[in-house]
């Protein structure tokens, strides 16, 4: 959760040992993948465990509202995500020599937004799974396409029309755009806020959708 992203980031740094400019170009956008992936897995399995052990059913017979339940999840995971984001960004920026032109605090902000997104998608996925085995299968379906099309491998504007359109519909693309922006420009321009707003909108929508799919009464 905290150690693995740091180790991976360090590995990446040595992969680009002789191409540090390339590390600068790839490092910041890649920072968004860690919170998305880890939060998706952790939150989907956590909620599924509540379903499987019956603790969710018990919680739903208490005065607790469904929104409060998911809000609690969101708060807890957002805190964890902030810790992760701060740790990995600090390591990348201070120790590994990743250079970002824009304000470094915004790097952390984008990571936290992506983490909340990952959590929302994870909570949503758990509604469609009966077992842990099923829910981890949602991971490649929900996360890999975003990683392929977000502009991590090839800049989005170079993609063929259809893929570009799909990429436009995926939230991670906007997070990667935001990171590219921070890598190249010093100020925090409107486009950056726009990208951040899209990521957060997707995050809020997925948490809201999971609240809808979380039924108090089940068959």
């Amino acid at each position: 959760m905290l150690v693995v992203p740091c180790v991976l980031m360090t590995t990446l740094r040595f992969v680009y040992q002789h191409k540090l400019r390339a590390f600068d170009a790839v490092g910041a956008p890649l920072l968004t993948v860690f919170p998305l992936a880890t939060m998706f897995v952790v939150s989907s399995v956590a909620l599924l465990r509540e379903r499987r052990t019956g603790t969710l059913e018990r919680l739903l017979t208490t005065p607790l509202s469904r929104l409060a339940l998911l809000g609690g999840y969101a708060l807890a995971f957002a805190l964890l995500a902030t810790l992760q984001a701060v740790l990995v960004s600090a390591l990348a920026l201070a120790v590994l020599g990743l250079s970002v032109v824009g304000p470094t605090a915004m790097v952390v902000v984008v990571c936290v937004a992506v983490a909340i997104l990952g959590m929302g998608l994870g909570l949503l996925a758990s509604a469609f799974a009966q077992t842990e085995f099923q829910v981890v299968q949602f991971f490649p379906a929900a996360i890999y396409p975003q990683m392929l099309l977000a502009g991590l491998l090839v800049p989005r504007q170079h993609m063929v029309g259809v893929l570009h359109a799909i990429s436009d519909a995926m939230p991670l693309s906007y997070a990667v755009d935001a990171m590219h922006h921070l890598g190249r420009q010093t100020g925090v321009a409107g486009a950056l806020w726009g990208d951040l707003a899209v990521v957060l909108a997707f995050a809020v929508a997925s948490v809201a959708l999971s609240a809808v799919t979380l039924r108090r009464r089940t068959a």
Partner: peptide, 13 residues
């Protein structure tokens, strides 16, 4: 929900 206590068959803790 404040007045009803429920214990499921499998220990839900």
């Amino acid at each position: 929900r404040r007045q009803v206590g429920y214990m499921t068959q499998a220990p839900s803790v």
